[in-house]
Amino acid sequence: MKKKIIILVILSITIFVLSLFMGPRVINPFELDGIEKEILFSIRLPRVMVAVLMGIALGASGAVLQGILRNPLADPYILGISSGASLSAALGLLSGLYIFGRFTIPLSAFIGASVVSIVVGAFGWKRGGLWPERLLLAGVGLSFLFHAALMLLMSISTDEGLRRAVLWIFGDLSIADWSLIPYGFVFIITGFIISISRAKALNALILGDELAHSLGFSVQRERMLLFVSIAFMTAASVSLGGIIGFIGLLMPHIARFLIGADSRVLIPASAICGGAFLCIADLIGKSIMPPMEIPSGIVTALIGSPYFLYLLRRRDVLSI
């Protein structure tokens, strides 16, 4: 297993480097001219960093969420966090204030994601703890509600800007620049560290609440901590680059297929796979028909779904 992890890490670093120097035009790292340097450091590097951070956040929170909900279909977006973020970003724009300048969209998306996490948590809360089924159903219900409200806003709005900003929400890494990365990094790494430190408890939770309790874990406390870690990672990733589908659902399954279901390795492996996969998807999206770009969210789903279906045929991966 160690060997597999080392291979995975090496592969991911290769992909990271490749997506820095490949693209609509290949950059030779040994003969950089002024323009190429500019492109490398102020366009490609932040973009690849955002891809890696988002991939890590989505991959890890997908693995955690499938565990705490004991549901192989769970995806960080199922909790309504993403649709709440889109709605709040749209409202932030519609208020017409544009208070925070170009930070308006990411910031209002982040606020929306955080508020929705708390609301979902409140709905999932009963008898002094979070209950997986309640959490899941509350998330599904809320995301329908937010989605409908967003559609309503879009259909009654005559503001072209709003329509374009909503485009952004659906997965676009081209806006990545250095200014947001430090904030995103702090939230995502915090969430990631919490989730890894609770991985053992997650293993127990997957077996069932009673068993986890008898193994000596405080079920509700662990679940709460894991939920907070997901909220951190998902909220930060939405405000970094919008909603990029499929990574949160697919990566845990691929990681499980590659190295097994132990959460202690599964969470980091799923995170690494997520980062690498989003890098590849973005690389393809921007290189396939230059000078146009295809939003990364579309590419992840286009190449992710067939592989997912292939895995499904090959073995029983839809388990946690």
């Binding site: 693209g23 609509p24 035009r25 323009i35 500019e38 492109i39 366009i43 490609r44 724009l93 017409g96 544009y98 503001d159 072209e160 800007g161 081209s174 921007k286 230059p290 000078p291 146009m292 770009e293 295809i294 939003p295």
Partner: peptide, 22 residues
Amino acid sequence: KYSIEEIIHQAPDVIFIGKGHI
């Protein structure tokens, strides 16, 4: 939906930005 890298490569002499509602 245009690539930012391509703008830098193609080095426009003049850029127009359409005024919107905001």
